[in-house]
Structure formats: C-alpha cells, structure tokens
Simulated scan of single mutants.
Amino acid sequence: MPADPLHHAGQRLRSTTSRPPSDAEVSPVEVRRSTRRRSTVSAYREGGRTVVLIPARMSEAEEQRWVTVMLDKLAAQESKRSLGDAELAERAGRLSDQYFDGRARPASVRWVTNQNTRWGSCTPSEGSIRLSHRLQGMPEYVVDYVLLHELAHLLVPGHGPSFWRLLEAYPRTERARGYLEGVVAAGRLPHQPPSRTE
C-alpha cells in the first residue's frame, strides 16, 4: 500500500512500535497516529516493518484491534497475489514437514471453484487435496490451517480425537477456525456498506 500523504506532510502526532500478536510471523509493527486522520486506518510495508496509520484519538485497545485487523488484511492481500497451484503444493509440503514430520504427502493440491459450502476437501485414496477459491485473499495462517486440516485427512480419515490431536501441533488452529466461523457468520448478516478504511 502506498504511504499516507498526511504522514509525509508532517501531521504525525506520535509514533510507537508495537509487538505484533504473539502467534503472528510478521515484521515489527510501527503505529503512527495523526491528528488529521478522523476515522480511517491504513497500513503498508516499509523495509522490514509494517506501518499502521491511525487517528490520534484512538484508545490503546482500539489501536491493538486495528493493528490485528490491518496485519490480517495485508497478509490476505499478499497471499492472494502469491499463491498459485504450484505454490500451494509447495506450501503443503512444507507444512507437512513442519507439523507432521513429512508423513502427509499429497499427490496433488489445487484451488477449485466448485466448493461453495466447504473450505477444502481431501480424497485420501487418490492423495488429492482441493481448496476452495473463497480462501484466496484470506490471511496465510487461515490457508495454512485449511491445508493442514486436509493434510491430516491423509493420515486420519475422520474427525475423531486422533485427527484433532494432529492439528494441536499448529499454534493458530483456534484463531483460524474463529476467522472462518466469522466469515460464515458475516455471510448470514444483512448486507451493510463496509466500514471505511484506506
């Protein structure tokens, strides 16, 4: 995302560096507050850090909430730009190595557009994994969770205790499940104009 012109016009009130959420594998975060900013929030990558621009009046709690929201938004944009079928298969291999000692080896991993009621599917007899195109653009940790979920089915077919024990190794399981549940819940709400963010 481009830098905010208000910041470069010298309107920054203060700048703080925050630690990202503990389970985020992201660069350090710098929060810049602006007296000219009324309600918009934006973020961009700058060198080895992430800069989040917020109104000066925001509370610390609002700041932390918006940092999390903007980190997820940037990660989603970067994931959407970078993950094709080949990258998805490579990512599955790395996740299997990291969390399952390389035991889950799919024959194919690809995006599909015909899964509108589930996020992914696996056919263990063929070793094939399919992820819904609706995941494209979601944060990487969410895509990784769905990949791991389907990889786990190559080792354990059902959803019994041994299946969930496999997924306990992934530290973002609960966060990713919460994100996906939120997406489903939001889809059931009446349509409202999105809140304004830059």
Score class of each variant (00 low, 15 high):
L154R: 05
E198L: 07
A56V: 13
L13T: 14
M138C: 14
R175N: 12
R32D: 07
V41W: 02
G127M: 00
S82A: 09
P157N: 07
F163N: 04
S22A: 12
V69A: 02
I129V: 04
S34F: 01
L95P: 02
S18V: 09
R130L: 08
G120I: 02
S108N: 11
I129H: 01
R38C: 11
E46R: 15
R91I: 01
A3N: 13
R196A: 15
G93D: 08
E150L: 12
P190K: 13
G47L: 01
H149M: 12
S96D: 04
S195T: 11
D4V: 05
A76Y: 02
Q136W: 03
G48E: 06
E150W: 11
P5A: 09
V51A: 01
Y179G: 02
Y44V: 09
L151V: 05
P20D: 06
L155N: 02
G182M: 03
A92C: 01
P106Q: 00
Y145S: 00
K80C: 08
V183F: 09
W111V: 05
K73P: 06
S128R: 14
E90T: 11
Y145W: 15
T40R: 10
A61M: 00
K73M: 02
S162V: 14
V146A: 00
K80T: 08
L74G: 06
R19K: 14
A89C: 06
R36Q: 09
T16P: 03
R32L: 09
Q64V: 10
E168Q: 13
P124C: 00
R177I: 13
T40Q: 07
R165H: 14
R103Y: 05
R32F: 03
D144Q: 04
L131G: 01
L147I: 02
R36A: 04
A107G: 06
G160V: 09
S128N: 13
L154E: 03
K80Q: 11
L180F: 05
V143M: 01
V183S: 08
D85Q: 10
A75P: 03
D23N: 08
E140H: 12
R134A: 10
